[in-house]
């Protein structure tokens, strides 16, 4: 069954691997041949344990390493396939086109590059669908698009999905995975999306509606310091990197090495910042159970 969720084979794996491939190529030039072969279309080398995995097998295993359980990043489509009941997802139809409001150098070409690379218009996919039969409004931030950073369009689409949840009284789920935070190229317009989405969530909260925030690798900066941290329930996928400031910035500031396991899901759990750390294979089940419990709206007092 998992197989079906991950439709065509090697396509998904290449997103991550293209990067590795180009790195490998550079290496190859300098150090001679050999290593490049591993990143053949058919194989992926685990970033964690070095195990060489047949792509087909990796996809079947939800892109979790068969050897060490390392969770490879999923793109938004794979994430939706994993969580949403088959054929129940409808993407919201609005077409918002990103512009270059600050006329920031090279922004357009950057956008174009990522649009071609990911097949997405922007770093978020929003829509509604069912999870275990429960209708939900859902947004997935795609870390493959400009590091999943938030700009005007991403902020607007996230706000609209919150508003849809509010208007149609649907539970809201936002899957965060963005290391870019607020997108530099749109300056303060990006930063203010943090306030905009948080304000919209205040309304949802006032209405007594459920918001489940799911944090996946990586969740940082403007994403983590806004909607991602505001869930009634916050679930972190196993071994994701989650934090406010990036590790390099912290290291530079304090001039010390960072402790191992710093800013992982498990670190966040230990420090009381997330409700639960969940492996990819159990993620849907956990969400269904939470939705289930919240669907039972018994009278508390007559």
């Amino acid at each position: 069954m998992f197989k079906d969720w991950f439709g065509s084979k090697s396509k998904y794996v290449t997103v991550k691997r293209q990067k590795e491939k180009s790195k490998e190529k550079k290496k190859k030039k300098g150090k001679g041949k050999g290593k490049g072969k591993i990143t053949d279309e058919l194989w992926t080398k685990c970033k964690n344990c070095g195990e060489i995995i047949f792509n087909k097998k990796l996809a079947q295993n939800l892109k979790v390493c068969l050897e060490c359980e390392y969770h490879f990043r999923l793109n938004s489509q794979e994430r939706l396939n994993l969580l949403i009941d088959e054929d129940s997802f409808t993407e919201f139809g609005e077409e918002l086109e990103t512009v270059n409001p600050l006329e920031f150098p090279k922004y357009e070409s950057k956008l174009k590059k990522y649009q071609e690379k990911t097949g997405l218009d922007e770093a978020v996919v929003t829509g509604e669908g069912q999870i275990g039969g429960h209708r939900v409004a859902i947004a997935v931030i795609d870390a493959n698009f400009l590091m999943g950073s938030m700009n005007s369009v991403v902020g607007e689409k996230v706000t609209r999905v919150i508003e849809t949840a509010l208007n149609e009284e649907l539970p809201l789920i936002i899957i965060s995975g963005g290391g870019g935070g607020a997108r530099m190229y749109e300056g303060m317009l990006s930063l203010m999306q943090m306030a905009k989405t948080s304000a919209a969530l205040a309304k949802l909260d006032d209405a007594g509606q459920l918001f489940i925030s799911v944090l996946t690798d990586p969740t940082y900066g403007g994403i983590s310091a806004s909607f991602a941290s505001l869930g009634d329930i916050i679930i972190a996928e196993k071994e994701a990197k989650i934090g406010f400031a990036g590790p390099r910035v912290i290291k530079q500031t304090i001039n010390k090495d960072l402790p191992s396991g710093f800013q992982t899901s498990e670190f966040q759990l230990e420090h009381g910042m997330v409700d639960k750390v969940v492996g990819r294979k159990e993620m849907k089940d956990v969400l269904v159970r939470i939705l289930d419990i919240h669907s039972l709206r018994g009278e508390v007092n007559a």
């Binding site: 948080s198 969530l201 310091a225």
Partner: peptide, 26 residues
């Protein structure tokens, strides 16, 4: 900027900022 340090992360810098924005909105 908000302080980028180990303890700030341990105590939830991101959550503190996010929460403030949500509450200030209302």
């Amino acid at each position: 900027g908000a302080y980028p340090g180990i303890e700030a992360e341990e105590r939830g810098q991101a959550e503190a900022i996010a929460k403030n924005m949500m509450e200030m909105a209302r």
